[in-house]
Each structure stands twice: as C-alpha cells, then as structure tokens.
C-alpha cells in the first residue's frame, strides 16, 4: 500500500488556501531537502516546471514535522483554519 492510498483513507476537508507556504527565496539555497524525507504523507515534491519545492497541502496530516526539519525556516506552517484539514475518526 503506498502513501497516496493511505492518505485516501483519511477524511480531509481541504481549504482553498494552503496552510503551508514555502519561501522559495530561502528554499532555493538549501542543498538538503529534509522536508521531502521527513513528511509522513510524502507531500513534498520538486516541480518539474519550476524546479522549486512544492507541497500538496491537501493531504497534510498536520504533524508539523516539515516545519521543524526545515532548519532554514523556509516553511511557514500554521494549522488550517477551523473546519478545514484532516479529521481523524480513530486517532
């Protein structure tokens, strides 16, 4: 079972605006993309077009690990607004 299939099992109500913002000017100078290996949802990718790091915020499990691992502070992360985001039924 891959991560996408697992994420598909969750109930997630996605807002129109991302709760994760990447400051590309800082991100571009980073050789180590820890965000890509720490995210349990495997949501960080490098865009084929722009070569910039992008995040598929709608699958977010709201753990915040990417923000902690982004030692340069390029990831601005906040909780999704009330009523949005993941809704655990088991937890």
């Amino acid at each position: 079972m891959n991560v996408e299939e697992k994420l598909a099992k969750n109930i997630i109500k996605s807002g129109k605006v991302s709760h994760i913002k990447i400051r590309n000017e800082i991100c571009a100078g980073c050789e180590k993309r820890y965000c890509m290996s720490v995210c349990p949802g495997n949501l960080y990718k490098i865009s084929e077009e722009t070569k910039e790091v992008i995040v598929e915020y709608s699958g977010c499990l709201e753990c915040g690990t990417c923000m902690i691992a982004c030692v340069r502070g390029a990831i601005c992360w906040e909780y999704p607004g009330g009523e949005f985001g993941v809704q655990y039924r088991y937890g």
Binding site: K32, R33, Y34, S37, V38, C39, N42, I68, A69
Partner: peptide, 15 residues
C-alpha cells in the same frame, strides 16, 4: 526522532 531522520537524509524517509 526528527533529527535522526534528517541525519539519514536522503536514504531513509519516514513514510
């Protein structure tokens, strides 16, 4: 530990 996954970058990913 978050620092431990980072130390194993890019060979080990959490998922």
């Amino acid at each position: 530990k978050i620092s431990a996954i980072m130390s194993a970058y890019p060979h080990i990913s959490s998922n």
